[in-house]
Simulated assay, not measured.
Amino acid sequence: MHAYTVEPLYVKSGQEVLAADFYRPKTEHKPAVILMAHGLAGLRQFKLVQYAKQFAQAGYAVVLFDYRYWGGSTGRPRELVSISSQLDDWRTMIAHLQERKSIDSRRIILWGTALSGGYVLTLASELKNIQAVMVQVPMVDGSELGKLYPIPQLSKALKISSQDYMGGKVGMACKTLPVVSRDDLSFMPTEDSYSGYMSIVHPDYFWSGEIPARVFFNLIRYRPIQEVRKISIPVLFIAAKEDSLMPIASSREAATNIAPYVQYYEWEMKHFDIYHHPWFEKAISTQLEFLHQHIGVSS
């Protein structure tokens, strides 16, 4: 087990500055580095710190960052989710890691969960400077999100999304939708999503629970599953058999498309269970085994 330090890190991305935590294990050799960020509307403190600590103790450097508009990063409107901007933030952080002298920039691993799991699969299909990818309960096909809504609700969500997009063009205040809700229209409309998402929210950090509705239209069109055949690096893929947000059939199809580069697992859990005992411990054990197999730590 390695001792480690945690340092603040700030990286320019376009006109904004991304805030991150840099976990540096105390070792004589330059460590491999794991780049991490959260899924839809998540802050880096929403349960990801527990993963970063485990990886750092195992001897891997970790950079855990907030997207622009979120947490410690700059940008307005606050709590805006932009798929294109968030993918650019990943690319910016990867480019930054390639320049850092304190880590082994030839061994960069991307780690994603839910929406960010989709992001890192997209990036793995296009970039050549990544050594491996780990995803858990990834959002591989946004079109499945649209199928969760009855037609009247879907029409309402698309209308609000369009109004917010057009309003944003002329500087109007954002029209928002809840990330999760017990009763109202929300981005995650399934029965277990409210209690599941709220179980990962950290009460010490500001989080309104609502985001600008304009991203809805892009979310249901975002389909990493269409790109994953281009991946040719090791991928660890953990899916939830009882995932109400991403059908297990979509995860199986995505994994099949990544073969033979994928190590695929599906466990008898729901979407948010992987952040909690006992699934968290199982996920860490599986992820560390994958890392040791494909990356390794110099003693």
Rank of each mutant, 00 (worst) to 15 (best):
D66W: 03
Y222P: 12
P203W: 04
R223H: 09
G168W: 12
I34W: 01
A37K: 09
D164Q: 11
A239P: 10
Q163V: 12
K282N: 06
L288T: 00
K270G: 04
V179L: 11
N218D: 15
S199W: 01
S84W: 09
P247C: 08
Y4V: 04
Y23K: 01
Q54A: 12
Q226W: 10
E99D: 10
K159E: 14
E210P: 00
I109N: 04
M198V: 10
V6N: 00
L18R: 06
P152S: 08
M198Y: 05
S250C: 11
P224E: 04
V179F: 10
Y149D: 10
P234H: 12
K270I: 02
Y51T: 01
V137T: 15
A213S: 13
S199D: 05
V235S: 07
A124M: 11
V120M: 10
G59R: 04
A255I: 06
E7Y: 03
G59T: 03
V262C: 07
A58C: 05
F65L: 07
I103L: 14
S13G: 07
V215A: 09
T92I: 14
L64C: 02
K282G: 00
H294R: 12
I103F: 09
L97S: 06
R76Q: 12
M269V: 07
A56R: 03
E281M: 06
I130E: 04
I34T: 02
G39W: 09
A58S: 12
Q163S: 12
V62Y: 00
I238S: 05
M139Q: 06
K159T: 14
K30V: 03
I83L: 15
S125D: 07
I103G: 03
K12W: 00
H292S: 13
S285E: 12
S85C: 11
L97K: 13
V17T: 15
G167F: 14
H292W: 08
H276S: 03
F217S: 14
A41Q: 03
Y51R: 00
S155R: 15
G39H: 09
I108G: 05
S199K: 04
T176P: 07
K30R: 14
P138R: 03
S195D: 15
Y261R: 08
P278W: 08
E227Q: 13
A249C: 05
V6Y: 02
R221F: 09
I220L: 13
E268V: 05
A132G: 14
T256M: 13
G39D: 05
F217L: 05
R91Q: 15
L219V: 11
K175Q: 13
S244E: 15
R44Y: 00
Y60M: 02
F280L: 11
Q57C: 03
Y261G: 00
G59H: 06
F272C: 06
E266Q: 09
P77V: 07
S84L: 10
P138G: 08
G168A: 08
A3V: 01
A58E: 06
P189Y: 04
